[in-house]
């Protein structure tokens, strides 16, 4: 698949990327020949059925998995080096807040590890709490917050140390649709305000189309890219844009891509 959006500086560059897990049942090709360039400030969604390698690809970018073939650079460095340079924040499917820390304490976790001063920690906590609309919730414990608020806190935690890249692995997969709609809107606002590069794994077509500047459709066995769709939607996206013919056309193309990738299995 040829990239068309490599006009801006490349932030993530994958060339012929392959990743094989050795299991007792033989090798599993989680990723095969994945080539993709993500430019600065892009919002790229990865969509596909389970086993298509979308999460594995995100984890490889974050140096949580190591590719067995091809090359992968983040900000021109190896993923490991990029991690040491605090290049990205990672948001997991579950908020994963520490129950023994307050919301503010949870956001301070990466800041403590990275050695920010106490004053700087306080200042940053206030700033990112405001960014995710959780002002005043710093002293609450996670169990006192709803699932959606917990996930917002975990996004705040990923934003706290000013990484340029935000990697989100099905962050709203466990939330109900009403909450998910709101959080999608907020993520877009956040993206506009912070101009971060975002990699977003999802299995929801409307979510992918609504959020992304580019949608990467993937398919399993072996995990590979089957289509890359440029969004023609404007950057400003009210929720009702999802009823526009343009939106429906893109969603249709994603669905077609998913079906083609599945071959005769579905």
């Amino acid at each position: 698949m040829k990239d068309t959006n490599a006009t801006t500086a490349p932030v993530i560059e994958a060339k012929g990327l392959g990743l094989t897990f050795e299991t007792n049942d033989g090798p599993v090709h989680a990723l095969k020949d994945v080539t993709l360039t993500v430019g600065k400030g892009e919002f790229v969604s990865f969509i596909g059925p389970s086993g298509c390698g979308k999460t594995t690809f995100l984890r490889a970018i974050a140096a949580l998995e190591y590719p067995t073939e091809g090359t992968l650079t983040v900000n021109g460095m190896s993923p490991d080096a990029a991690r040491q340079a605090r290049a990205y924040g990672y948001v997991f499917q579950a908020a994963g807040l520490y129950p023994w820390r307050t919301i503010a304490g949870n956001i301070k976790l990466p800041l403590e590890i990275m050695g920010f001063s106490k004053a700087e920690q306080e200042e940053r906590v206030e700033r990112v709490l405001a960014l995710v609309d959780l002002d005043g919730f710093g002293r609450k414990f996670p169990w006192q917050l709803s699932g959606g608020m917990q996930q917002r806190a975990s996004i705040a935690r990923a934003l706290a140390f000013d990484a340029d890249i935000l990697l989100m692995d099905e962050p709203f997969g466990a939330l109900d649709e009403i909450v998910r709609d709101r959080l999608n809107e907020e993520v877009l606002k956040l993206w506009a305000r912070t101009e971060k590069t975002i990699g977003f794994v999802t299995h929801s077509i409307p979510e992918a189309v609504y959020l992304s500047t580019r949608i990467v459709v993937m398919s399993p066995r072996p995990g590979r890219i089957t289509d890359v769709i440029e969004s023609t939607l404007p950057r400003e996206r009210p929720l009702d844009i999802r009823d526009s013919p343009e939106f429906i056309a893109i969603a249709h193309r994603v669905r077609e891509g998913l079906r083609a990738g599945h071959g005769d299995e579905v």
Binding site: A62, R83, F92, Y98, F161
Partner: peptide, 27 residues
């Protein structure tokens, strides 16, 4: 795994992992 992965994304060492995650979780 997720909580351990999270600390890895912060480039946290064993020391931080022990004091900030393992020990409190074991209480």
């Amino acid at each position: 795994h997720m909580q351990l992965d999270l600390l890895r994304t912060y480039n946290a060492g064993r020391w931080d992992t022990f004091w900030k995650l393992r020990l409190p979780a074991s209480m």
